[in-house]
Design a protein around this nucleic acid. Structure first.
Lengths: 119, 119
DNA sequence: TCGAACCCTCACACTCGTGTGAAGGTAAAG
DNA sequence: CTTTACCTTCACACGAGTGTGAGGGTTCGA
């Protein structure tokens, strides 16, 4: 798969895919002509990256935790240092707080919309 | 209340409060000496702004929808144009998608942590 | 063989939410 | 009166994401 197709299938721009690569988040193969070649698994990978970025994690952290998360079954325990685990716990808790905040705000907007509709 | 106290009570920085003002999200009074003077209601207001920013809304949008949301009971139906309502619906739906994404990612991290713990 | 639609790198520049620090005014307490 | 802890504005900088354009290569179908 070349960059255009991956961009289309993940809903990102080519630009952004190159940016993620520059940040060390994905490292596609290269064809003889220099074109990037992505496997099927990159679709999921990119979506996970977008999810984590959206969760507020900086690329720096994502780069570190991605190796632990990218194999759904065969988890990499090896490179999970204690610091890494503590970091993950903190991030998970921050995400929980974030989800609550987001839910409250969404519901506030929802309540407003409902009130207007019932007017 | 001056800026320092508001910053402390809302968990933001003074810098950020000035930025929100610059963006037209809050407009505190001014004392004779030029100091910003905030009323009690700004605590809630700032927290709501932070919630919406965290939800991914840009200040531009927040500036528009805040007048509709800032009075919990006495909602401003008046300035809720159809475009505004459509915007709010879109944002609410985007927030829902965002919550789902965030939850999935948090759970993935949680599952990883649980797996490591059970090793 | 030509053109369209891809791809490449490099680079400048903008937005948005923040941090940080400089240079200076003010207020209150020792 | 001086120190300390506020406050003011202004400005530079960063990270993440994104647009745009220059200058150039590749692939493929008409």
């Amino acid at each position: 798969m070349r960059i255009g197709e991956l961009a289309e299938r993940t809903g990102t721009s080519r630009r952004l895919l190159r940016y993620y690569e520059e940040q060390g988040l994905i490292t596609p193969q290269r064809c003889a002509n220099g074109y990037r070649a992505y496997g099927e698994e990159f679709v999921d990978r990119v979506q996970q990256i977008r999810g984590l970025l959206d969760a507020g994690l900086p690329t720096r952290i994502i780069r570190e935790i991605l190796p632990c998360l990218n194999r759904p079954r065969d988890i990499h325990f090896t490179d999970a240092t204690p610091e890494m685990l503590a970091l993950l716990e903190r991030e998970r808790d921050a995400m929980t707080r974030r989800i609550e905040l987001l839910t409250r705000n969404r519901d506030a907007i929802g309540a407003y919309l409902a009130a207007v509709r019932d007017r």
